[in-house]
Design a protein around this nucleic acid. Structure first.
Length: 553
DNA sequence: GCCGTTTTCGGCCCGACTGTTTTCAGTCG
């Protein structure tokens, strides 16, 4: 089954192989095409069917033809040929930290080394000592890299943003509290809210870089300092994540934030625009000749390039720059606009005090309504419901400032029968393994307000049917923080089909629960505006479309 | 291999850091 991810990987591998062969510009061209394909919102198949492969940034005639070949046959002959030409071990050498194409090629051509094992033998035998350009430090670095690669599984794995978020926030918080730094911001794909992050780019303004580096290096999360200069430090965390910390002056903070937030292709496009306007842009600012004309804020940088501000979540070079050149972009849904959450869970054993905790937190967050799930099929499929005393406390908590509503969860194959459906005011559809969206229906008189998917549901990778069902029921689709359960894909499909989203708030979770910022970011990446979001305020969103004849509180 | 309100040919982002150097090459992001 051809996939965008696999095609992107093939083109990335082609770039590596061309690197080793000493090609100059082709590797970058293939990498650019690979990154474009990776961030596509649509499968390659339909794009090819419409004959629109050429509209993908970085894809020209030659790569379009290779994509068609891949879609047709599942293979690319050019790739197969390159793999025969270059020993596979050389690509492994290329992927060792600190070793690049030039070095790998020299090993191959000058020493006949074709893989990591032969390289290790050469190091051990001292064959590298006599080679020009290899001093003792370099050789030690190679030895370490080989040892690390042998000990660790093949690295480079990206981490789900949900996993990286708490540690990223802890680091940022520690830097804010313990150093004399004025501004601390985590940039990179983390700030763009990609589903996964490869590393963390932390940006700090301070007039004492050394003190910032000292604080950072001593954090308990930091396992190893890999390099340290006057403006930059690179560390490895205990969980394996790499963190690049940079200290910049306040006058350059906006420019640095743009630069290190990326994406790379967004930046390259910005520089092209700058050049067209007779300007230069780098991480220090926008320059006309020697004069810096912008740099302290991101808005200044975009304005100097005659562009409207572009939200980080949109910076993927998918047309956002062209749109910003035409005028202001529509405002994406904002954290302050989220006014409620209809899908708050309490465990079946929860008591009245748990209700108070949830309600208190909802008030602190200035929400105007919450829906609490009082029953549904449990993880094992058997029905459960909250104890009557807890439900009574829920009803009592309802007041004009915070409307509290009761929900039940339903699934097509496991519609609960022994639930207090009597007290439920709306239902939340929950896809279950192997179930058919068409079968999803709530008990009589109970409106379905939301369809929320959970990890492990069989159809979560093919959400279209569920989103269509939500659309037909007039329900919203919940967006959560799960990279692996493809929440951001759900958000994109829902948005493209005009189905409303609901942003999960993580209400009731632990203090460092990343649910809300990530779910919100996924919605924003999908281009969601306030009217697209069911739980974003604006006055037009009734909490529940209530069946007629019901009590009103 | 891609791309074009300077171009269909001749460019291709740009700066920090490291190691090995007597002024620079390679790697990384």
């Amino acid at each position: 089954m051809p996939s965008n991810a696999e095609a992107a990987e093939i083109f990335r591998n082609i770039a590596d192989l061309l690197d080793v062969l000493g090609e100059k510009f082709k590797p970058d061209a293939y990498r650019r095409a690979s990154r474009s394909i990776e961030t596509l919102t649509e499968d390659l198949g339909p794009i090819a069917a419409r004959d629109e492969l050429g509209t993908i940034p970085g894809v020209g005639d030659a790569i379009a033809e290779k994509i068609r070949e891949y879609l047709r046959t599942g293979r690319i002959a050019y790739y197969d040929r390159l793999q025969k030409e270059v020993p596979p071990g050389l690509v492994e050498i290329l992927r060792l930290p600190g070793l690049g194409p030039k070095t790998a090629r020299r090993f191959w051509v000058e020493l006949g080394i074709e893989g990591p094992a032969e390289l290790a033998d050469a190091v051990a035998a001292g064959r590298l000592d006599r080679v020009k350009g290899f001093g003792p430090r370099k050789i030690a670095l190679i030895r370490d890299a080989l040892r690390a690669a042998a000990a660790a599984p093949p690295g480079g794995a990206r981490m789900p943003i949900e996993t990286a978020y708490p540690v990223a926030e802890r680091i940022a918080g520690a830097l804010r509290a313990r150093s004399r730094s004025d501004r601390v911001e985590i940039a990179g794909s983390f700030r763009r809210r990609r589903e996964t992050v490869g590393d963390l780019d932390v940006l700090v303004t301070s007039d004492e870089p050394e003190a910032v580096f000292d604080t950072f290096s001593r954090l308990p999360e930091v396992k190893e300092v890999r390099l340290r200069g006057s403006t930059k430090e690179t560390c490895i965390l205990a969980n394996g994540l790499q963190v690049d910390l940079r200290v910049v002056e306040p006058a350059a903070f906006g420019a640095a934030l743009v630069y290190f937030t990326g994406s790379k292709d967004h930046n390259v496009h910005l520089r092209t625009i700058a050049r067209d306007r007779g300007l230069k842009v780098n991480e220090y600012g926008v320059f006309r000749g020697e004069e810096r004309i912008a740099g302290s804020t991101e808005a200044d940088v975009y304005a100097a390039l005659e562009l409207a501000y572009i939200a980080p979540e949109l910076r993927e070079n998918r047309g956002e720059i062209e749109a910003a050149a035409r005028g202001p972009l529509p405002a994406l849904v904002d954290a302050a606009e989220i006014v409620g959450d209809l899908h708050v869970h309490l465990p079946p054993s929860a008591g009245p005090s748990d209700v108070d905790r949830i309600v208190g937190e909802a008030r602190r967050r200035r929400l105007t309504y919450v829906g609490v799930v009082i029953g549904g099929p449990g993880a094992d499929g058997t029905p459960w419901s909250l104890p009557p005393a807890t439900v009574a406390r829920l009803i009592a908590a309802d007041d004009p400032a915070l409307r509290v509503r009761r929900a039940i969860e339903i699934g097509p194959s496991a519609t609960p029968r022994r639930l207090p459906a009597d007290g439920a005011e709306f239902a939340i559809g929950r896809p279950t393994a192997g179930s058919d969206p068409a079968d999803l229906a709530a008990p009589d008189g109970v409106p379905v307000r939301l369809i929320a998917h959970v990890a492990g549901a069989a159809d979560e990778r093919a959400p279209r049917g569920w989103i269509e069902r939500a659309h037909a029921l007039g329900a919203a689709v919940e967006v959560g923080p799960g990279a692996e359960r493809l929440d951001s894909t759900w958000a994109r499909h829902a948005r493209e089909s005009g189905t409303r989203l609901s942003v999960a708030t993580g209400l009731g979770g632990p203090p460092d629960d990343p649910t809300f910022p990530i779910a919100l970011g996924f919605a924003r990446r999908a281009g969601a505006l306030r009217p697209d979001v069911d739980n974003a305020g604006g006055g037009s969103t009734p909490v529940v479309r209530r069946p007629s004849g019901r009590r009103r509180s």
